[in-house]
Every structure is written in structure tokens, then in C-alpha cells.
Design a protein around this nucleic acid. Structure first.
Lengths: 229, 229
DNA sequence: GACGAATTAGACAAGAGTGTCTAAATTTAT
DNA sequence: ATAAATTTAGACACTCTTGTCTAATTCGTC
């Protein structure tokens, strides 16, 4: 038993560095090539690590894959909750604030590296690992959707929006915010900042035409009058 | 040179039967297993055909794959245009008619066998075959989106809707109609009829709250008053 | 500098998949 | 019925990948 500073929770420094570089490379390669198309040598090369090291760390290809998905789910969830915490509970300008939120959500949770990887792995391998992706469904959408819906409910209760069903409204909000990015997502591309802003702007305007109060409670500015360009 | 009824366009009958059963099976297997994960023996078994016959018909695995994607693109396009032709240009009840259209589009173009297969193949292999999927993008979304937008433009011009940009409105219409099916699509599932109807109903109601005329031009029935249940 | 743990390169066996070939069997049309 | 075309089963060479093993080397720590 070592009486040292690092009992057992902290393996040598280089060890951890290899670990993350393996995770990084494996995410990249599994995403690009699919599970069957990826091979361990590719991952090893991309990680700058020998093949044997990967086997030392993760045992076999399937365990590695599962570890990647769990890791991505966790990191994406963290990003989503961080973003939800920027939701405009007391908006100064509802349209501007919701657009900012939508852009934020897109950039930090959906278009970023982890978001793209996780989405593609779920789409590609979801049917092959039912229990793994059931876990994702619970941990991911199962927790984030209600959290977003709760924010919209609060906004409605405070008189900023006219919403019947906050769960439906939340899903529609995100669907609208992404409406113009679907084709790009399909092909695995990453939309430009401008495309994200465009889609969010159009989406939020439509959302507010549907759910905005005719006369805003707190502010006299008219949102829907800005329709042109 | 045969002077017969079938010069060279119509090979023997059984030949064609094999061909379609190969296409069917290959779509199924490529979709389920991804290109790299699929193997020819699997496809042959599923098609009820010997491996050699597949090589006789298509040359190699990659050519077979390309043939499948082209075939699916064509068949999906046909379905989409057929569905677009049912768009309510002169609606009796705008909400009811648009819901029917949305359900129709979902059932016949997105949730059906070909739609699911094509979507998954694009998501999974899109990055590996840029030119093939560029072709899809032109033939598919490139032609169907404008066609749908044109229908909405006509509806707006006739005084049924208040739309600034028909292209944006068309994309948002479909995004809203599918808003509640996204998670199911992600995992490769097929939504039930009821889920499709729910999503379409909620989507169309929101769409009409955003783009509907306050007082319908042709009809005095109020749509948005049906909010309950 | 010396020790122990981790990493590395390389060889290796085992298995799986592709694409070809052949000879027999089956289908289709005449 | 007969001839041509197609399909079939099976064997085959070839390649690629996985996962293991070993011996040498590097790294972090004392």
C-alpha cells in the first residue's frame, strides 16, 4: 500500500493523456467509418499510439465502442445543461434573446464535435445496441427535453408567451431552430455560423408568431413587425 | 439479331424477378448493417439467390451499393411528387387538409420502407460517396423543396395564409410536422400511425398560429379555438 | 542512476469476406 | 424435345482484421 500523494485514483500522467487521445481518435474514426468499417490500426495511428495500448486500455473493439458512446453522451449532456442555464428567464428582448439561445444550443450541443459524433453513432449503430441506446435515450432526451420545456413553461407563466403544452412547444422550438440545417446534418456536414444564425432567426420569428403575446407584457417593442429581411 | 417480341430490353422473366429481389434484400441489409458491415452472403441469403448471381448482375459490392442508392432516390422522389400532388390548393378546412397532407407525406415518403432506407444510407455513408450524394441532393431536396414551397406560395397568394418567404415556410412546415418523431427516427424506428397523427396535428396547429390569416378568407370556422385535447 | 510500470513494434494464428472459377442443374424460349 | 442462357453450390486464392504474444524500449518515480 503506497502512502503516497496518489493512492490509486491517479495513474501516471502520460497514461491519462494516452487515454483521452484514444477516445478522441476512436470517436472520430467510428463516426467516419461506422463500427464495422473502423479498424483498430486506424484508431491507433490517428491517436498516435500503438495498437497494443488500445487493447491494454479497453479490452476489445466492442468495449471501446461502448466506452465512446457513454463518454459522448455524458459530455453532450453536460453541454446541453450548461446551455439550458443560459435560457432567458427574464428576457429584455424576447426575439433577440431566444435567437441567442437557439444559436447557442446549435453551436455548443448539436453542430460541435461531440454532438455530431454522438448523433451519427446513434443513427448508424442504434439498432445494433438497443440497451446502450436506450440508456442514451433516458440520460439524454429523457432529461434534457423536460428541462427545456420547464423553462418555456416558466416563460409562459410569467406572461411572455402563450403556450398550451410546454413539452410540445419545446420540441417545436428546436425543430424550428434547426429547420434549415437538416440537409446539411444528413450528409454529415457542419453548418456555417451564418447558416446557424439564419435558421435560428427564421425559426424564432415563426415560433413567436405562433406563441408570442399579441402585446408583450413587459415591453412595448413589436417583434413581428420586423418581418422584412 | 432476334426479330422477336423482346429484342434486348426484356431479358427472361425470372431474371427480372431475381434483380428486384436482390435490390430489396441489399437495401435492407446495407441499411441494417452499413456498407462495411454488410456482406454479400447475407444479401444473397436474404434475397434467396446464390452469391454468384449477385456478382453476375452487379459486378461488385460497391456497384451494387450505388445502384441501391440511385434506385431508392428515384422511388422516394416519385413518392414525394405523388404526395405533393395531393396538396390542398383549394382547402375546405385548412387545418384538417394540411394535417392530412402532413400525415400523407410522413407515411408515404418518410416513414415508409424506402424513405427509412434512403435516409439511413445517406446519414451513414454520405461522407464516403460525395458525388453520389450530391446527385441525391440535386434530384431529391433540390427538386422537392421548391415544389412544396410553390404550393404554399399559391396558398398564400389565394389568401389562405400570410407568408413572407415560401421556401422558409415550407421547410418549417415539414420540420413542425416531424417535430415529435425525431427521437424515433434517430434510433431507426418507425413511428406508429398515432404518433404520426399527433405530431402532424400539433405541427399544423402551430404552423397556422404563425401563418394563418386571423380571419379565414373563405370560411368562417375558427381553427385555433380547437386547442383543447 | 535504478527500478517498475507502461508502451512499442513486430510477428503470429485464426477467422471472415471478397471476388473468381468450374461443373452441374435449372429455367426459358424455340 | 432441344438449345441457349441463367442460376447454383462449392472450392479456391487472396486480403484484411482481430486479438494475442514476446522482447525491447521508453517513461515516471524514487
Amino acid at each position: 500500500m503506497k502512502t503516497n500523494v496518489s493512492p490509486d485514483t491517479t495513474p501516471p500522467r502520460g497514461h491519462e493523456a494516452k487515454r483521452v487521445s484514444i477516445m478522441d481518435a476512436a470517436g472520430e474514426v467510428f463516426c467516419r467509418e461506422s463500427f464495422a468499417g473502423a479498424n483498430i490500426d486506424m484508431i491507433a495511428a490517428e491517436a498516435g499510439v500503438s495498437r497494443q495500448t488500445i487493447y491494454n486500455h479497453h479490452g476489445d473493439k466492442e468495449k471501446l465502442f461502448v466506452a465512446i458512446v457513454r463518454d459522448l453522451t455524458e459530455r453532450c449532456n453536460a453541454g446541453i445543461f450548461a446551455t439550458i442555464s443560459t435560457f432567458p428567464d427574464q428576457p429584455k428582448d424576447l426575439e433577440v434573446d431566444l435567437i441567442a439561445f437557439a444559436v447557442h444550443m446549435n453551436r455548443n450541443c448539436i453542430c460541435n464535435r461531440e454532438g455530431k459524433f454522438l448523433r451519427k453513432l446513434i443513427q448508424t449503430e442504434g439498432e445494433r445496441y438497443p440497451e446502450l441506446f436506450a440508456e442514451w435515450r433516458e440520460q439524454g432526451p429523457g432529461r434534457t427535453w423536460p428541462a427545456i420545456a420547464a423553462r418555456f413553461a416558466r416563460l409562459a407563466h410569467a406572461g411572455f408567451l402563450d403556450i398550451d403544452d410546454p413539452d410540445v412547444a419545446a420540441r417545436q422550438f428546436l425543430a424550428l431552430a434547426n429547420a434549415e440545417l437538416q440537409t446539411t446534418f444528413m450528409l454529415g456536414g457542419t453548418p456555417s455560423d451564418d447558416e446557424v444564425l439564419q435558421s435560428a432567426t427564421h425559426g424564432v420569428r415563426t415560433f413567436l408568431r405562433a406563441f408570442g403575446k399579441r402585446q408583450p407584457a413587459a415591453d412595448a417593442q413589436k417583434h413581428s413587425a420586423l418581418a422584412g429581411a
